[in-house]
């Protein structure tokens, strides 16, 4: 049956003949087939039966040494074949154009020759094994992933996805004390009521962490969550003012701030053996929107 004219024109115009036992060549074919949007090339391993019969002017030893592009009366080998291919792959055409610049062929040919001569010795690139490019890129990626995982541990950074993996490791006081915070509303009659410690979409656990790390501050200036260098009582008051302004707004939106509230008192609690110990850190007054430390 005679193929239709359309089918004939749709056929690839060039044969790309490569070493089918070479991993680098196989990888080049893999990507080359995907980049050949114009459908110009047919990739054929030089071990395939019929390659030499189709192209009797080629010699087996030449095909073992370099990739060949054959078709439309042209035969190109090695570096010349590669830049011919690249110029016709739309995504790589810019690289093909660079390879055609005057003088580019001298280092290009040398580099191609070196890779071709060493691909099965130094580069150890046999079929089924990762190519040298794969190994290089994968090595960079391996170092990056282990770097991310190791950096948290080495630099003591605790911020997703970095972790220094504290994982339940902290000093416990002899009496097993644990500490917490309470936000207490105070109305005109002096009546107090504990406010829910969840606001603005943050549950209690997260809100108290944000409160401690960003506003309250740690006595350890080196701590990643709440370590504040050169902290002073004045700076502390300013941060508390900023926090409670936002907290009061959010609590009001949530309907959690009782009507008639004049102030919010910040209480710190120490829970150990025996009765709770309470300490009033200060009070935020809603009228003048200011937090004052307790004397």
């Amino acid at each position: 049956m005679t193929p239709s004219p359309d089918a004939v024109s749709a056929r690839p115009r060039y044969d790309v003949i490569y070493d089918g036992d070479c991993g680098i060549c196989e990888a080049t074919r893999f990507y080359g087939e995907r980049l050949d949007w114009l459908g110009l090339f047919r990739w054929r391993p030089n071990q395939e039966e019929g390659v030499l019969a189709d192209h009797p002017h080629l010699k087996r030893e030449d095909l073992d040494r370099a990739v060949h592009v054959v078709g439309c009366g042209r035969t190109l080998a090695g570096f010349e074949a590669m830049r011919f291919l690249m110029l016709r792959w739309p995504l790589a055409a810019w690289l093909g154009a660079l390879m055609h610049l005057p003088g580019a062929s001298i280092p290009g040919r040398a580099a191609y020759r070196w890779v071709a001569d060493h691909r099965k010795t130094v580069l150890a690139c046999r079929i089924g094994e990762p190519t040298i490019l794969h190994k290089a890129l994968a090595s960079i990626f391996i170092c990056a992933v282990l770097g991310v995982v190791g950096a948290g541990a080495l630099l003591r950074v605790e911020s997703w996805p970095l972790t220094c993996a504290p994982m339940f490791a902290n000093h416990v006081e002899p009496d097993g004390a644990r500490y917490s915070f309470r936000f207490i509303s105070v109305d005109q009659s002096g009546k107090e009521r504990e406010l829910p410690s969840s606001a603005g979409g943050l549950p209690e656990l997260r809100l108290k962490r944000v409160f401690f790390a960003k506003y309250y501050g740690s006595v350890d200036p080196g701590y990643e969550y709440g370590g504040i260098a050169d902290d002073t009582p004045a700076k502390f008051e300013a941060r508390m003012t900023a926090f409670f302004a936002c907290f009061a707004d959010e609590a009001r939106k949530d309907g959690a701030l009782p009507a008639g509230t004049l102030a919010i008192r910040l209480e710190t609690i120490r829970d150990a053996e025996g009765p709770l110990e309470r300490h009033t850190c200060g009070t935020y007054t809603l009228r003048d929107q200011r937090f004052r430390r307790a004397p």
Binding site: V172, S180, F181, Y216, G217, V219, D231, T268, R270, C281
Partner: peptide, 20 residues
């Protein structure tokens, strides 16, 4: 109260930084 988030303290911290 409703606390699920606890904190720990360093009782040996210098007095100057214990203003909170």
């Amino acid at each position: 109260g409703d606390s699920t988030q606890f904190f720990v303290a360093n009782r040996d911290a210098p007095a100057g930084v214990k203003f909170r």
